[in-house]
Design a protein around this nucleic acid. Sequence first.
DNA 1: TAGATTGTTAATCGATTAACAATC
DNA 2: TAGATTGTTAATCGATTAACAATC
Lengths: 215, 215
Amino acid sequence: MQKAISQAVIKRLPRYYRYLGELMDEGIERISSSELSQRMKVTASQIRQDLNNFGGFGHQGYGYHVPTLYNEIGNLLGVNDHHNMIIIGAGNLGRALANYENFSKRGTSIIGVFDNDPSVIGSVTGKHQIKDIKGVEAFVKEHGVDIAAICIPKSAAGEVAKNLAGLGVRAFWNFSHMDLELPEEYIVENVHLSESLMQISYMIQDQDKKREKDK
Amino acid sequence: MQKAISQAVIKRLPRYYRYLGELMDEGIERISSSELSQRMKVTASQIRQDLNNFGGFGHQGYGYHVPTLYNEIGNLLGVNDHHNMIIIGAGNLGRALANYENFSKRGTSIIGVFDNDPSVIGSVTGKHQIKDIKGVEAFVKEHGVDIAAICIPKSAAGEVAKNLAGLGVRAFWNFSHMDLELPEEYIVENVHLSESLMQISYMIQDQDKKREKDK
DNA sequence: TAGATTGTTAATCGATTAACAATC
DNA sequence: TAGATTGTTAATCGATTAACAATC
C-alpha cells in the first residue's frame, strides 16, 4: 500500500467484480487478461495495470484464477465487511433504495429509513417502517451508522448531512440536487439523476447536429 | 463544431448549468471564471477551457453574463428541446423515476411506464397508469420515443433494449445490473447503483486501512 | 523445454493547469 | 486610458496503451 489508487481505477473495480461474478456463474475457473478484455471491452493492458495496483493476483503463463480474483476484489471493495446504512427521505427514491435487495449481499445493511412527513412516518415500505427524522440522532448513537443515503430536497440536505457527519456518519450517498459541503475526510458519492439524464439529452442533440451537417 | 467534445467536458456541463441556475436565483447577473471557480471548487482555467469548446460566451474584462451563459448551456444540453421517454419496469426504481418532477423541466417527458407483471399492470403510480409491456411496440410506433429507462432485471434487460432499439429508440438510460450490447450509434448512459455504493464501501475500507497504518 | 501470459517499464495520448497576449 | 478578465497557447500532469523481459 504505497502510492494512492486513482479514482479512475476505483471506479472500475465494481465492474471487474461484476464480470468476475458472471465468470463464476458460468463455472469458468481461469481467465487471461486478453480474454477478459474482450468480454469487458477494455484493453488487456489496462486490466493488468489496474489489478497490479493491488499486488500480483495473476500467474505468468496461466492468467488469473477466477475465484481467487473475485474474492480479492471483493475484499478490496469491502463486500466481506459489514456497513450500516440509513436512508434519509422516504419519497419514491428513498423507498426504492430501501427495497433494493442487492446491497446487503455486498456488505451494506439498511437499518433505518427516516422522513419528516407525519403522513408517512409509521407506514411501512418493504421490510422497513419509516421512522421520524427527529429520532435519527438517538438512532445513530445507538446503532452506529457508516453510510447515509440522502434522498431529500436540497433545501434540507446540507443541514441534515452536516448533523449526521457530526454524529459520526462517515460516508454520504448523495442523491439530492446539490453538492454537500463537508470536510474532506468525509466520503461523498454523488448520484445526480437529472444530470445523468441531461447527458443523454446532450448526446441526442449532438447526434442531431452531426446528422444535420452530414446531409 | 470541429473537434469532438470530450466525455469529461460533457459530464461537467450539467453541473455548470446547475450552478448557473443558482446564480440566476440569487439574481446575480455577471460572474468571472475565478469567482465561479471558487463556488464550484474547480480551476478557473478549466472553466474557461470548457466553455470555449462551444465558442466565446464570455467578454474580456467583464466575465460571463449569467442569463446568457445559462441559456447557452441549456441549449447545449437540450433542455429547450423536447424528448419523449418511457420507463421499462415499474418496480420501486421505475416508479421513483416516473414520479420525478424535474425531468420535464429539462425537456424530457415521461409518456409511458411499462411492466410485465399482471398484478401491477393497470395500477397507477403518480400520474401514470402502468401499461402492459406487450403493448410497448405499438406504443413506440405511435408516439415516437427517444429515450427508454431500463429498470428491469438483467435477465430481461438486454432483450428488451435490443427490441426497443429496433423500433427507433435512440437512447437508453440503463439502471439494470449489466452492460447493454447495442451498436455504437445508440446512446447508453449507465446508472449502476450497487456499483456506486461499492465505491463508497471501497473508500471506507481504504480509510480504515490508512488509519490502522497511521497508528 | 517451449509457449503463454503476467508484471512492469517505457511511450503515447489526453486532460488539466499555468501563463499571457488580446481586448473589452 | 488603466484594469480586468477572457480566449488560447504552452507546460504539466496523469492515465492509457504498447512493448517486452521475467517467469510459470
